[in-house]
Every structure is written in C-alpha cells, then in structure tokens.
Design a protein around this nucleic acid. Structure first.
Length: 149
RNA sequence: GCGGAGGGCCGGAUGGCCGCGGCGGCCUUCGGGGCGUCGAGGAAAGUCCGGACUCCAUGAAGCAACGGUGCCGGGUAACGCCCGGGCGGGGCAACCCGACGGAAAGCGCCACAGAAAUGAAACCGCCAUGCUCCGGCAUGGUAAGGAUGAAACGGUGGGGUAAGAGCCCACCGCGCCGCUGGUAACAGGGGCGGCAUGGCAAGCCCUACCGGGAGCAAUGCCAAAUAGGACCCCCGCGCGGGCCGGUCCCCGCAAGGGGAAACCGCCGCUAGGCUUGCUUCAGCCAAGAGGGGUCGGGUUGGCAGCACGAGGCGCAGCGCGAGCUGCGUCCCAGAUGAAUGGUCAUCGACGGGGGCAACCCCUGAACAAAAUCCGGCUUACAGGCCCUCCGCGCUA
RNA sequence: GGCCCCGUGGCUCAACUGGAUAGAGCAGCCCCCUCCUAAGGGGCAGGUUACUGGUUCGAAUCCAGUCGGGGUCA
C-alpha cells in the first residue's frame, strides 16, 4: 500500500541492530560461577539432560537451602573428545557459548553442565553451538510432557 | 638450470568487540570495581637416560649380589648425550650409517639336511696293489673335486705327487716380536712362525667403568576432627662412635673453633628415675604424672616447596669443534574441574576445481598444549626462509 | 603428575629354555545319533602372535622404539 512512505527511517533502525547482535545489554555483565566439585557434577548428571549434535546439556535446580542464588555452570570434556588440544578448545567454546546464552535463557537457582562431544564441539560453526544451546535450554525448561510408556 | 648433501631459523599476519589467570599499586558500600603489566612449545609429548632438590636407609671406603654402559681422546654438574679422531660399510661425490671390548678363561647351543657342526671322521669320488664270473669287489693312501647346509678345518697361483695335501714357494689373510709416526684408538713398514684360531656374548659368562632406595601426589608447616589414641623405655659419674644438621654451654667482633647432652652400637648385674597402692619389706606386681621413642585407620581445606636459573641476549678472548672464560644487559607463565582464549573483518601458505595463459572460484593453516626445574635422546609435524657444499649440463 | 604391569582365533588361556604345521577348552558351521531338542561322537573353518625396525641361518620368544589397555600413589 501507499501509506508508508514517510516512515522509512523507522524501518531502517529496526533492521540494523540484529546484524550487530552482541549489544552490551547494560550492566548485566554476569560472570557465571563455575562448578568445581565432583559432587556437584554428579548431582547434575542425575537430573535432566538434553543432547544435541554439538553438546549434551544437564540441568539441575539447586535445593532451596543452598542459599546462593544465581546461575552456575560447569564444563566437562573427557578423553573421548580427543587429545588435550581438542579438549581445551571444546571447553573454551562451550564457555563462550554459555556466557552468551545462559544469562538470558537460564533460570535463577539452577546448575548447568555442558558436555563436549567428539569432533563437533571444537569444529562446528559458532552459530550452531549457540543455536544448540538455546534449543537445549528451552527444551529442558519446557513443561514436562506426559512420559510416553 | 636440474638433481642431491649438511647446518640454522620460523612455523599464520593486522585490526575491532567481548572474555580468562598471575603480579603491582589505586578505589571500595569489603561483595568487588577499574588501571598497568606479563601470560604455552620446538617438540610443552613419550617418560627412555642423566642431574638439581627432598625424604628414607646407611655411615664416608671396600666387598658381594643385581642392573647399566662398552673403539680412542676431549667437553660437561652428569649422562647411554655432544665434539674431534680411528676402524668397518654405503655413495661418482658432498656426505651418511655402525649395541664398534673379549669366542686360544670356561659352560652352552648350532634344528632339518649332511660322512662330519669342531678335534674325530669319509657318502660319491681320485690313486695304488690284489682278485675277478669283466658288472665290479677287497685292502691301503688321499681330502683336490662333487653332494648337504646359513656356515665345512685358511684363499689365489705355481711347483710337487701314483693321486693328493702348507708337503714346498710367492702374494693375501692370521698369530708373535721389534722399529717409525701418533697422548691414544690405530696406521705404515720389517723379521719370524707355518695353519694351530667356524659362528652365536641383543645365551650364560669374563673384563673395564658407573650406580644405596624412592620420588614434588617427595617433603615440611597451619587449621578442623576422631581424641585425654595404642605400645615400649627411664640403671651405670661404664666403654666406643658422634659433632654434617637441630638444642645447650664456653672462646671469638665475626666467619668459625671446642665441649656436653641427645642419638647409635657394645658391655655389666643389683634389672632400674618420681608418686601411690599391694606385699613375704631383699624384691616382685599394679596404677598414675612427667620426659623420650616407635606405630597407627579414615576425611577436608590452606601455605611453603614454586620459579633468579648449570637462565636468556649481546660483545670480546681461547679452542678445529663440543665448549670454556670475562664484561655488559634483561627478568621472562605459574594454573589446580586446571588461565594463556572466543568471534568478526581484511590479507593469506599448502591443497582441490576451471582456464592455452594472465587469472578466477572453493576450502582456510601441520604436529601438539606447561603442571617442581634443568641437560639430552626418541617420536610427531602442512609448509616457508637463510647459509655452506657436491655431481651433471649449458654459457663465458 | 610420578611409578608398575600386560597385549596370542569371537572369548578364556598354553607354547616364552630361539628350531619351522602356533596348541587346548568354550562359541560358530556341516554330518551322525534322537520322534524333536539338549548332551554325546566325527569333521571343518577361523591367527599380519598389537605395530615398526634390529640381532640370528632362523623370532610368538631376545633387543630397541611406537600404539593401545589396566593397576597403584596425596
């Protein structure tokens, strides 16, 4: 229709931000606490999990008496991922992905454990990693369906 | 220009945004914030050698056992490493490779085949003599030839002989003894001997040299906790060892020196110091406090060890070289579910595809990440750069 | 991070003192037995002795180096 000519500047401003996408978002800047105790990893592994092509995500809501609120995150890359270089690289990329996604999508008071997989975690495009983590977190927090027998 | 040999170095670049670990000082509402600075390798790897350091055992050493190394000389803190040389092998050459002591100290093994696998012999042969039914047979000599084997009792040539044989000779090889050169391994040359000495030592062994054992998850300290842990000892102005380290005393300004106790070993008999109880009042037994020693289950944090070192770089001198010495200069990772990065843009080596070509498109850096530190070795590694040298071809 | 040990058919083990076709049981396939199955009997196939070099006439064995697996120590 012809009703929109004078409003061209608005559409222009609407299209430019997504290209930059990593806006500072103000003072949010949360450095996520890192899980370090083996017991915490074992507890998370017994809770919910969701696998994707590039990673496995485990999530666990901490019990209320565990006072510290906020999101915590841990990373696991076992020897199955590859040699030391591949393990370190996979762990770093998981850390960057968690830093980008979890402050927005993660739930307060939960622990997340990201597990690297062979070949894919270290080599896949970074956008795929972000997409997989978004999908896994949303799936983990989706209302539980009735389990199929 | 093509092909090859040796040595050294590098192993993605620049920028934007967002992060991580250590250190320093600043601010702080003690939660932290922001600033500056530093932050993976040539192999950080394998853990195959050698050390530093720590604990344990022992006292300096020597011997035995076990393990390792193995031409000679040098370098080094040390080495199984490196450098130089010798010998053997490969290559036209530059150069490369070598577990390279001893097999007449001894033991053992050498399957099958073969007469025989190391001290004894002869299957087919060859030769002589005798016999003959002319096919051969018997006795003796011989070990050159054949046959077996991975390997067969020196090799080649000549003389010699019935046939042969180091039986004799020459050369080579081997052994012994001098000479010359060299620090030496060894090399050269001389004389003598006259075949005696098969192979395997990554089989045992002999010989020379080296090595006490374990390892930073060593070790020490702090905090919490089982918890008031368990057991043993306490004699002698005895004798000897022992002052490296800790304690005490003396001397000295100090470095240091001396002594004592501790500690270790031995000896002796009355069999053990203090308090209490029992008692047959010599003594024995039991309990307790103190001191000393030994041993011990399980759990979690923190600190030290832990980063100034056989250190890097530059210059000079000595040395063929490995390297050594001196001077100057620099401070250069320190984590512990473990930092040293993620992503984007531009450029980009190798590779793949297209094109006669210029060039275009796609992909987008190898191996591999400290964990107490250092010297080596070995193994992995896309590719690039520099220097020196050798062979062939062309031109001058 | 350090130290120690082990690699033989699909599985569990022999042969490890060098000597030639690497052997046994279970599992697999075929046949016999049985009405059928199991058990039993006979036969067959299945191995780069983890890999790569070296020593030796000859290597599963001896030596060196790679790779993989396991155990142990605060």
């Amino acid at each position: 229709m012809t009703t929109i000519p004078p409003e061209a500047p608005e559409t222009n401003t609407g299209t430019t931000p997504p290209a930059v996408s990593s806006c500072p978002k103000g003072a949010k800047r949360s450095t996520l606490p890192i899980l370090r105790k083996r017991a915490e990893f074992l507890a998370a592994s017994r809770a919910r999990r969701q696998a994707t092509a590039t990673m496995v995500v485990q999530a666990r809501r901490r019990p209320p008496e565990d006072a510290a609120s906020g999101i915590r995150v841990g990373f696991t890359c076992s020897k199955k991922v590859g040699n030391a270089v591949a393990r370190n690289r996979a762990k770093r990329r998981l850390r960057e992905a968690a830093r980008a996604i979890l402050p927005e999508l993660g739930h307060d008071g939960w622990d997340y454990v990201l597990i690297g997989r062979r070949d894919t975690t270290a080599a896949a495009p970074f956008e795929t990693l972000l997409g997989d983590l978004r999908y896994a977190v949303s799936k983990l927090h989706a209302p539980r369906k009735k389990p199929q027998p």
